[in-house]
């Protein structure tokens, strides 16, 4: 207990001050474990992600990334351990977690048979954006993406790169505290892939935290911090710069290979 009498008894004031110095944590994970029968998919992982950060979540196929991500999104209950996402307990308040995050996967993101504006309208409704705001915000979004002309286009007619950009924008349409992106740029052409990352930067400048998985190691360089999972555990977590120093190499590809080669288990 701090009995220092020099500090005025004003906890609210103190908290504001601390927040100004240390950015708020949007994800806090402590000793998180997920077992399927005798198989430990996620094995005591702990980490924090700060507000506005781009956090790269890397690992080989079968390392436990998807399982960990599903727990963080409130879709799967941890076997043990604790996690707070956007301020809510992933175990007890999974519905609140879902409302306060965005999610985008490579495979499923939008409805192909709906028009661009219909997709936006649908997700806006699901996330409870007030009726009055939807039209205006849809217009803003389409203008920002230079998609004005595609308003009435069926999503299935858009090139993959456009779909992914639209899917990302839809996933943050409700301004969540954090958005989870599961391999968002797989198969996308090089120019669009870079434009996609510029959308990510733009989102973080608005204070949205980005949690992203990728198999492109150049994209690991765009993250503020990167974690690498091996056999259910986080084997490394730092800035790309520090990881390269630590593993005495020039690129993230080689950091990843050095770590992932240690993997013993063969997944699934």
């Amino acid at each position: 207990m701090n009995k220092d009498t020099h500090i005025p008894h004003d906890p609210m004031h103190q908290r504001t001050k601390i927040q100004n110095i240390v950015p708020q944590k949007v994800i806090e994970v402590h000793d998180l474990v997920k077992r399927f029968g005798s198989f430990t998919a996620v094995d005591h992982i702990s980490f924090d992600v700060k507000q506005g950060e781009i956090f790269g979540f890397l690992g080989a196929n079968g390392a436990g990334k998807t399982t960990a991500m599903r727990m963080l999104c409130g879709l799967s209950k941890p076997t043990s351990g604790k996690g707070l996402v956007a301020g809510f307990d992933i175990r007890k308040e999974s519905e609140q977690v879902k409302k306060n995050i965005g999610y985008m996967s490579q495979k499923f993101s939008l409805y192909n048979d709906l028009k661009v504006w219909e997709n936006i309208r649908l997700f806006a409704g699901i996330y409870g954006i007030p009726e009055m705001e939807i039209d205006g915000r849809t217009g803003d979004l389409l203008r920002r993406l230079h998609f004005d002309k595609e308003r009435n286009t069926l999503v299935k007619e858009l090139p993959l790169g456009w779909k992914q950009k639209l899917a990302f924008s839809v996933s943050i349409f409700h301004e969540p505290k954090v958005v989870f992106l599961d391999e968002p740029t797989g198969g996308v052409d090089p120019v669009t892939r870079r434009e996609f990352w510029e959308l990510i930067y733009e989102a973080t400048s608005r204070g949205i935290t980005v949690f992203v998985t990728t198999h492109y190691m150049d994209e690991a360089e765009y993250c503020d911090r990167v974690s690498i999972m091996v056999d259910g555990r986080i084997e490394a977590l730092d800035t790309p710069e520090n990881l390269k120093k630590q593993f005495n190499t020039q690129n993230m590809d080689s950091v990843f290979l050095q770590l992932a080669r240690k993997a013993k288990r063969t997944a699934n």
């Binding site: 080989a60 196929n61 390392a63 198969g187 198999h215 190691m217 990843f256």
Partner: peptide, 13 residues
Amino acid sequence: DEPTTGVDPVSRK
């Protein structure tokens, strides 16, 4: 046809 899509860098190598 795209044998390495969605495959991690170790398996790709």
